[in-house]
Computed example of a mutant assay.
Amino acid sequence: MKMSYKVLIVEDERKIADAIQIYLQPYGYEVYVVEDFTCVETYFAEVNPHLVLLDVNLPYVDGFYLCRKIRESSAVPILFLSARNGDMEKIMGMDSGADDYMTKPFLLEVLHAKVKALLRRTYGELAHVNPSYLQIGELKLGIETLHLCYRDKEVQDLSKNEWKLLHLLMSKPEQVITREECLTALWDDQTFVDDNTLTVNVTRVRKKLRALGLTDVIETKRGIGYQFHSVLVGVAQ
């Protein structure tokens, strides 16, 4: 690994937490395990992890609640670990803002594969250049936060999917990104996703950009997908 990623484990079954920590550490991850479940949010802020492994059944509050709280301020990838394997639980997990969902028991090798995929999708090579933000011209998108800045203006209430969509489009300026690529980037499991949901997310992103004074940055390519115009945010062609 070219950089050391911090992984936070929020799991009250200590044997499972220890097994994951022992397995991941030799690969170069900095692995942190929550000890006190009365202050998970505080510990999350202290660690500032690149990825969270979050159990659903926890003392005091459940993982769905904690996921929503984290999403209020961070775009960090979250992978649910749960003994609940029903479709409704998985839907609740995704609706809470999670990126993926694994049911117990699971193979540590499969968990590691998902961890690598989430880190690659979220940070990619950008993490080796600047781990704090992705910048196109004068527009900055937080890599670990849900913040979007342009000149002296800032939007702090991006949703996870709005952030994912912007990250995808800004990572490939001037390229036409197909709707299929967008759907894959936003949802691992597209079984319950209506195609119109993508259109709604694009509309919301455009609204956030307009709040910063940016219009026509994302162009719809009818029947194909979308294109991010970097020239409109201060990048010369």
Rank of each mutant, 00 (worst) to 15 (best):
M3D: 07
K6P: 08
K6W: 08
L8Y: 07
I9H: 01
V10P: 05
V10C: 11
V10T: 02
E11Y: 08
A17S: 14
D18G: 01
Y27V: 09
Y29L: 10
V33T: 14
V34A: 14
E35Q: 13
E35M: 03
F37C: 02
T38A: 04
C39Y: 00
V40P: 01
T42R: 11
Y43R: 09
A45V: 10
E46Q: 15
H50D: 15
L53I: 13
L54Q: 11
D55C: 03
N57D: 05
V61G: 00
C67T: 05
I70H: 08
I70W: 08
R71V: 13
R71A: 13
E72Y: 10
A75T: 15
A75N: 14
P77V: 10
P77W: 07
L79Y: 06
F80A: 03
S82W: 00
R84K: 13
N85T: 13
N85K: 15
G86D: 11
D87F: 07
E89N: 14
I91L: 15
M92H: 15
G93D: 06
G97Y: 04
G97K: 11
A98P: 06
K104F: 06
L107C: 06
H112P: 06
H112V: 00
K114S: 08
A117N: 14
R121L: 14
A127F: 13
H128G: 08
P131F: 12
P131E: 05
P131H: 09
P131D: 05
I136C: 07
I136H: 01
G137F: 11
L141E: 03
L146S: 14
L148T: 10
L148Q: 05
R151A: 13
R151S: 11
D152H: 11
D152I: 07
D152V: 09
V155Y: 00
V155Q: 09
S159A: 04
N161Y: 07
W163Q: 04
W163R: 08
L165M: 10
L166W: 10
M170Y: 01
P173Y: 03
E174P: 13
V176Y: 02
I177N: 07
T178P: 01
E180A: 09
E181L: 02
W187Q: 06
D188N: 11
Q190A: 11
Q190M: 10
T191L: 00
F192G: 02
D194A: 14
D195C: 02
N196G: 14
T199M: 08
V200W: 01
V200Q: 03
N201G: 00
R204V: 00
R204W: 00
R204F: 01
R204Y: 02
R204Q: 10
R206S: 09
K207H: 07
R210W: 00
R210K: 04
R210Y: 03
L212E: 02
L214F: 12
L214V: 11
I224D: 03
Q227N: 07
V233I: 03
V235G: 10
